[in-house]
């Protein structure tokens, strides 16, 4: 279904009436209208995952909280994104994510340019209440160009979805379950030995933390480019690299 020229679905977010496209989610229409809803796993250009739960919002007449990233808009939908309860939930969820891995900003390549760090500041996480798990995880530096440090991985699966849906290689996936879940390359071999990897680096570009990084980056030097995927997919959809004649 093609998008209409102008957004034509009225939605009320935090008291502001905004217009959405019929294929919008609560998160996408909020973003376009400058309404900030914290999120981590959501990434423009790839499929919706709904795993981090930071973007949960209150939709009137729904008896459960809904993730903004995966909730389609409906006419006259009334959404609240900033209630006290929602803020408390988000804060605790982020604390849980921080407690699960080994997130040590002071020695991280992404220090100062990290979505996880930014979220912590935004949500006012100045300490972590749940027990730190201090998992023992081994760094994979077998790839000639990139490193993977699972200590910093938050299992958002942006890399998994990007590699599978945009690059078409599906190098990454999640193995194990529950708190034993971890990221694997191909069938669990070192990344450098994973034959399906094309070295394209899109996974590194979209990683929200310092888990996937360029080799040779020192503390605070890594810059990710999460918008790359949306740029690529929209360019593909629009046929921007094709000769208009042959389209």
């Amino acid at each position: 279904m093609a998008r209409p020229k102008r957004p034509n679905v009225p939605v009320v977010i935090d008291g502001h009436e905004v217009m959405a496209y019929p294929d919008d989610t609560v998160l996408s229409v909020a973003k376009r209208n400058g309404i900030r809803i914290p999120h981590l796993c959501a990434l423009d250009g790839v499929s919706v995952y709904g795993g981090c739960r930071l973007c949960v919002v209150d939709v009137a007449e729904r008896h459960k909280l809904m993730p903004a990233c995966g909730t389609a808009v409906a006419e006259d939908m009334e959404v609240h994104t900033q209630s006290r309860t929602l803020q408390e939930h988000r804060k605790l969820i982020l604390e849980m994510i921080l407690a699960e891995g080994n997130h040590v900003c002071a020695v991280c390549v992404s220090n100062g340019a990290c979505e996880l760090q930014d979220l912590a500041v935004e949500l006012g996480v100045d300490h972590v209440r749940p027990d730190y798990q201090f998992p023992r995880r081994t760094v994979d530096a077998s790839h000639p160009k990139y490193t993977f440090d699972p200590n910093r991985c938050v299992l958002c699966t942006r890399c998994v979805r990007t590699c599978s849906e945009v690059e078409g290689a599906h190098v990454w996936d999640v193995a194990g379950r529950a708190n034993g879940s971890y990221l694997i390359a191909d069938l669990g071999q070192p990344w450098g030995e994973a034959p399906s990897c094309t070295w394209c680096g899109k996974c590194v570009a979209v990683c929200p933390t310092g888990a996937l990084a360029w080799k040779g980056k020192a503390v605070g030097e890594m810059r990710h480019d999460p918008n790359l995927v949306a740029f690529l997919t929209s360019a593909r959809d629009e046929g921007e690299w094709l000769d208009r004649e042959t389209m």
Binding site: Y49, G50, G51, C52, R53, L54, I93, M96, I97, A99, E100, P130, D131, Q133, V154, L155, V174, G176, R177, A178, N179, G180, S181
Partner: peptide, 20 residues
């Protein structure tokens, strides 16, 4: 906490922390 699939953060980490 053992049977959580691990997809969403509150269940994956929350059940573990609650168990602790």
């Amino acid at each position: 906490q053992d049977e959580s699939c691990g997809k969403c953060a509150p269940c994956r980490v929350g059940t573990l922390e609650m168990h602790r």
